[in-house]
Design a protein around this nucleic acid. Structure first.
Lengths: 203, 203
DNA sequence: CCGTACATGACACTGAGTGTCAATCGCGGC
DNA sequence: GCCGCGATTGACACTCAGTGTCATGTACGG
C-alpha cells in the first residue's frame, strides 16, 4: 500500500478511497495514450488499476467519467466562486473573475495532466459529447448562482445567456491553452477569450 | 443505378424508406408518452413500428436519434441558410436571420409534433445530453459557414462565439416556445431571445 | 425472364452499466 | 483481546445498446 502525504481531517477510509480514485484516473490516462478511448474497455481500465470491473463503476458513473471528472470538478468550483463574488459586481464580471480564479488555482501546478486531459476531451468524440453535456448542466447551475447573488428567485433568460457565453469563453480559452501546451498564462488567455466573447453579437 | 427517373423525383424505395422512418418516429413518440424514455427498449420501438430490432438501427444510429433527428435536421438547414445570407450582412445578423427563417418554415405546420419533441428533449436527461452534443458540433459547422461567407480560411474565435451565442439564443427560444405550447409566434420569440442574448455581457 | 442492387430479418457477439450477495476489512465498544 | 457494525470489495448474473455477418426476399433495369 503506497502512501503519499498524510493530510489531517481525513479518515483512513477516505484517503484510501481517494487513492483508488487517483490510481484509476492515472491508469485511464496511461491507457488512453497508448490505445484509443473506444478501444480501451472498462475491464482493462480496472485491471490496470488493480481493482475489479464492478469497483470501477463504484468510483465513476461511466467510462467517460474517468476523464471528465476533473473538468467536472472545476465546474463545481466555478459555481462556488461565482457565489462568493461581491454582490455589487455585474453578472458578466462575476462569471469572468470566478473562472479566472479557478483557472489560476488549478492550471499552474497540474499543467501536464490538465493539458493531456483537455486534449483528449476535445479530440475524442465520445468525451467531447460528455463535456458538452456537462457544460449544459453547469450552465443552469451558474445561472442560478448568478441569480442567487442578486437575490432573485430564479435565473432570468439574460442570466442564462451570461452563464452560457461565459462558459463558452471558458471552453474556448481551455482549448487555446491546451493547444499551446499549457505554456501560456491561463489568466491572460481567459481575459482575451472573454473580450472576444463580448463582441460575439457586436455588428 | 436507379436515379431520379421517377415522377416526383422520388423512387418507390425512397418513399418507402421515408415511410418506415416516419413510422418509427411516430411509434417512438407514442411509446415515450406512455412509458418513459429509459423504460422503453429499442426492441419495443421496433416492434411498435413493425420492423426488426436490426432494422431500427439501419434508420437511426441510436435510441436517442429517433427523437433528436428532427432537431438535428434543423441544424443542417440553419447552416445552409447561414451560407445563403448576403455577404454584406454582419455575422450576428446572418445567424439571427438564418435561424428565424428555419423556424418560420418548420414551426408553423408541425406545431404539435415539434412541441412534443422539444419538451421530451429538454426534460429527459439522456435526450438533453444528446441535444447538447449536437449543439456543440453544430456550433463548429455554423462558425465555419460564417467564415466561408466572409471568404476566411477558417472560423475566428469571435465567429465561434457568434455561432455559440446564436445557438444559445435559438435553444432558449425553442424552450420558451415549447413551454408555451407552441402558440406564440416563433419569430417574435426568437427576436426577443436574440435581443436578450446580445446583452449577455453588457454590464 | 433474369441478374443485380438493396432492404430486411435472424443470429451471434462485444461491451457498458446495474443488482445482488457473500467475504473481508477497519474501527469503536465491551 | 474479542466482537459486532458498517463500509468496501469481488464474483456472478443479468439487461440492453449497438455492430457484423449472412441468407432470404423483392423491386427494378435490361
Amino acid at each position: 500500500m503506497r502512501r503519499r502525504t498524510e493530510p489531517q481531517g481525513l479518515t483512513l477510509a477516505e484517503r484510501k478511497r481517494q487513492l483508488v480514485r487517483d490510481e484509476l484516473g492515472d491508469a485511464a490516462l496511461r491507457l488512453l495514450a497508448v490505445r484509443g478511448f473506444e478501444e480501451t474497455t472498462v475491464d482493462q481500465l480496472a485491471a490496470a488499476a488493480g481493482v475489479s470491473r464492478r469497483t470501477f463503476f463504484r468510483y465513476f458513473a461511466s467510462k467517460e467519467d474517468v476523464v471528465i471528472s476533473f473538468l467536472s470538478l472545476l465546474g463545481d468550483e466555478i459555481v462556488a466562486e461565482v457565489e462568493a463574488r461581491p454582490a455589487a459586481e455585474p453578472p458578466a464580471v462575476a462569471i469572468r473573475e470566478a473562472v479566472k480564479a479557478v483557472a489560476a488555482e488549478h492550471f499552474v501546478d497540474n499543467r501536464e495532466k490538465a493539458v493531456a486531459l483537455i486534449r483528449h476531451t476535445l479530440e475524442i468524440p465520445a468525451l467531447r459529447a460528455r463535456f458538452a453535456e456537462r457544460q449544459d448542466l453547469l450552465r443552469d447551475d451558474v445561472a442560478e448562482a448568478l441569480a442567487r447573488r442578486l437575490d432573485l428567485p430564479g435565473p432570468t433568460p439574460r442570466l442564462q445567456f451570461t452563464a452560457g457565453l461565459g462558459l463558452l469563453a471558458f471552453a474556448g480559452a481551455l482549448k487555446h491553452w491546451a493547444e499551446g501546451g499549457g505554456l501560456e498564462n491561463p489568466v491572460l488567455i481567459l481575459d482575451a477569450s472573454f473580450d472576444e466573447a463580448g463582441k460575439a453579437f457586436v455588428l
